[in-house]
Simulated scan of single mutants.
Amino acid sequence: MYIKKILLAVILVGLLIAAAFAYMVYSTFFVPNTAFNNETAYVYVASDASILELKEQLQPLLKDVDAFETVADRKKYSSNIKGGKYALRKGMNNNDIVNTLRSQNLPVKVSFNNQETLADLAGRISAQIEADSLALLEAFNNADFLKESNLDDNTKLGVYLPNSYEFFWNTGATEFRDRMLKEYNRFWNDERLQKARTRGLKPMEVISLAAIVHKETAKVDERPRVAGLYLNRLKKNMLLQADPTVIYAIKRHTGDFDTVIKRVLYKDLELDSPYNTYKYAGVPPGPITMPDISAIDAVLNPENHDYLYMVANIENFGYHKFAESLAQHNRNKVQYVRWINQQKISR
Rank of each mutant, 00 (worst) to 15 (best):
P291A: 06
F145A: 10
L16R: 02
D152W: 07
F21I: 13
A49G: 10
Y319N: 14
V159N: 04
T217I: 09
E303A: 14
E191Q: 12
K5T: 12
L137S: 07
S164G: 05
A20N: 06
N150W: 07
A173N: 06
N185V: 05
Q115N: 13
A131G: 12
L52G: 15
I3W: 11
A143K: 14
V311D: 00
F36I: 05
R225Y: 03
Y184E: 00
K215S: 13
T40S: 05
N170S: 12
V311C: 11
S208T: 04
N33L: 00
V337K: 09
D73K: 05
N276C: 05
Q115R: 14
K321S: 13
A242R: 06
L137I: 04
F317A: 14
M204I: 12
Y280Q: 11
F112A: 10
I6S: 08
E175C: 03
H329L: 08
V108N: 13
L193E: 03
L62P: 07
L62C: 05
E270D: 09
A22I: 00
Y26E: 03
N301L: 08
L12G: 01
A295H: 01
T155L: 06
S346V: 12
R347W: 10
D48S: 01
N154I: 05
G282C: 01
Y2F: 13
Y42I: 12
N95T: 10
G123S: 14
Q335Y: 10
D272S: 06
L308H: 09
N304V: 14
I293P: 02
D243P: 04
N142Y: 11
V45P: 03
N304P: 10
N80Y: 01
P162D: 04
I17D: 03
T28F: 00
L265I: 02
S50D: 01
L88R: 00
I6C: 02
K90I: 13
P203T: 09
T198Q: 15
Y248H: 05
A127D: 15
V71F: 12
Q57I: 01
D297Y: 10
I293Q: 01
D152M: 13
V43N: 05
E116C: 14
